[in-house]
Design a protein around this nucleic acid. Sequence first.
DNA 1: TTTACGCAATT
DNA 2: TCAATTGCGTAAAT
Length: 889
Amino acid sequence: MSDPQKPTLMIIDGHSLAFRAFFALVQTGNFITDDGQHTEAVYGFLSMMLRLLKDEEPTHLGVAFDVSRTSFRTAEYAEYKEGRGETPPEFSGQVGLLQNALTAMNVPWITKDDYEADDILATLAAQGAAQGYRVLVVSGDRDSFQLIDDDVTVLYPSAMGVTALKRYDADAVFEKYKVWPHQYPELAALVGEKADNLPGIDKVGPVTAAKWIAQWGTVEEILAHADEIKGVAGSNLREQSERARRNRRLNALVRDLDLPLAPADLERRGVDATAVREVLGGLQMRTMLDRVLKLDDAEAAVASGAESRIAAPDVLTLAASEVDAWLAAQHTPLGLGVVVDTVDGEFAGIGLSSASASAYIPAENVDGLRSWLADETTSKVFFDAKRQLKASERAGLAIRGAVNDTRVMAGLLNPSRVPASLADQVLSALEESMPVSDPNQLVPEVPPVGAGTEAWFVLRVADAVTTTLATEANAGTRRVHDEIERPLTPVLAQMELTGVAIDAGVLARQREVLEQGADTYRTAAFAAIGHEVNLGSPKQLQTVLFDELGLPPTRKTKTGYSTDADSLADLLEKIEEENEGSIFLQSLLKHRDATKLKQMIETLEKSIAADGRIHTTYDQVGAATGRISSNDPNLQNIPVRSDEGRRIRSAFVSGEGFESLLTADYSQIEMRIMAHLSGDAGLIEAFRAGEDLHRYVGSHVFGVAPEDVTAAMRNKVKAMSYGLAYGLGPFGLAKQLRISQAEAKQLMADYFERFGRVRDYLRDVVQQAKSDGYTETIFGRRRPFPDLNSPNRVLRDNAERAALNSPIQGSAADIMKIAMLGVASDMADAGLGSRMLLQVHDELIFEIAPGEQEKLEEIVTRRMSTAATLDVPLTVQIGRGPDWDAAAH
DNA sequence: TTTACGCAATT
DNA sequence: TCAATTGCGTAAAT
């Protein structure tokens, strides 16, 4: 290993790292200043650089940039690095901003006309190594591997983003490529480099190239022995020898440039605080500004021998008798961080942490913790609380009191990026990396941390997130968290634990029917065209439809022409009389229906647990609007529209010891919210009158008496009403109703003539969102919309439709969540044995215990209809029956 | 084995 | 060219 006494020179390829950072962050849409300046590259680069400074503690630091896309290499080979896409406009300009920031931080940056950043790195690395430095080259270009030797190490970004850098020394390069670093350019010359538009020898991959290099060493030597190489690779090598020679010339880095700065000039200096404030403040990067300004303090701390990074406290393993004393010694405003430890799904113990101490209580000692866990007055902090609540409950340990979940908090603050794991959130909230077990890690680093230390990270993350939540700007979000989301977590956990009973026989019988049907339709489809195809392959279907049958092309997709049900129905309409084409299409459609349903049944069957019930998993922050999502399996998309599909619902039954199922759903809740939010007198009146909404609206739009509204008229306004909240345009409306665009346009005009406030409201929502940057529900749940001011039409239009839908869908979600809290609380207070089982956005499903039907209906109806006070009533429809289908009203 | 896409199910 | 989801199968990339 390297000599710790040596000074460390770190040199970074600015352009390539900034570019990677840009692409890693641009999709989040979170890095745009008020005046529209994108800052992904600046933020991402600085973020990575700060982490490197902390982790590697270089004494010397410099950044190299390309001057332009041309260099001596493009002079030799014009196509060099050609074929790369246009630089995104959002990226241009960020390099200049980054350079300004570096200047303010007193980090030297270097360019050289006619040369690339890599050549600068190569030169500095050579000088540094010669002058006794340990050299770290940070580059996203594999050509830099040729620089590696005992003194030079390359840090290379892994596939995604710049968060994880892989450390390449000579051994690491050999392990991956089976050649030593100085031989890497020989290998790259043979294999080619797609990113540089340098094609290699055809049919020669890294394995073949490495074999040749092991035998002969260099491209020149290999070419000298080209005659000895057999096969297609050999003949390609002989024919394409010039390619290899050219590649080898181009990928050799220049190590003797004349540069304005030498390694010694790159010694680190303190930042220019004023300049840093100006540059980063101007880019609205407050937290980054703080971090950069803290650099100097950290440096001073390091210099004085203190630990720059906070060290996790040691984890004490506690005996049952020691738990109380340990708990009594902890003082934390947020509560303790808790991690329920499981090994292969089995409860193994519990990790606890305050900010200053961590403990682990193994399963056999957990009795000592029982009363604290069940204490209503103590606060607990988790990452993904629901999973752990369930694991604990299954192990016979009840967890009560305030259950805080850092994942849910993060999801509330930024619904578009819910952390996938604790490590993910440690990275985003703390900008530290938490060691996790990762078999793909090239260099095995520190071992993963245990539950005690994880709990410590959870608490620190909670501290950071709570601080954000405590700001004035987040007051609404905080209320949604405290009053809706936090109390909802245990309710959802209980629903998942309970699950829903399934009549497996019903499913099995229907599966067999569908299997037969699918078989029949498949045979019929094959007979119609005279051969077999994979009916599940859109690609193969296209060949049949448009080449063999010569049908007219349908709507375009990214990869060809559409074969979805809509398109196929259109095609079917175009065929005048019954022929092989129409038979094929009809059979295909029916085959699709049957196989889809069959597949759905099979997944449901597989997810029936040992207790004969299906336990879904809800994601409390699964949807950006505030809706809950359901997965493994998804019980929110069980078919209902077709008779065949609905039969699946009849397999969802009440369990042993229960009377029947109860369903309760909100009637037209989104339309009601739209009436409330828009204040449209006509729509409000419609709901207050309690008439058939679509009939009422239809009578006004078409100017006829309500009893004269025909079914066709009713259908039209119904589609119109529903489409409104989604931003449906004349095109979409026409397509859905199969009417002309002109007629659709007229329908919309007539609609808004009568219900103009609705249009005003929708327009205002978008307008408001554009200036605020977010939308808000009735209860203050926010959703950011960074794309609303995008110069990209598609992005902007999509954002506009989502923005106008969000307060409506989101308010409905809030109302349902509030209702669930009320129902759960009243059921507990009344001591009911009945149980809440499922939520499907505007519907709740319960299992009725004997004799409780009336009481349960009262609670559910009251709590649902009073969950919010709107200008229109909230109507709830109740149904009851032995199964989900029968319970529908 | 992983990733992108098309398709389809719900509210 | 209609919002929010989950999830399957195919085909291509690895």
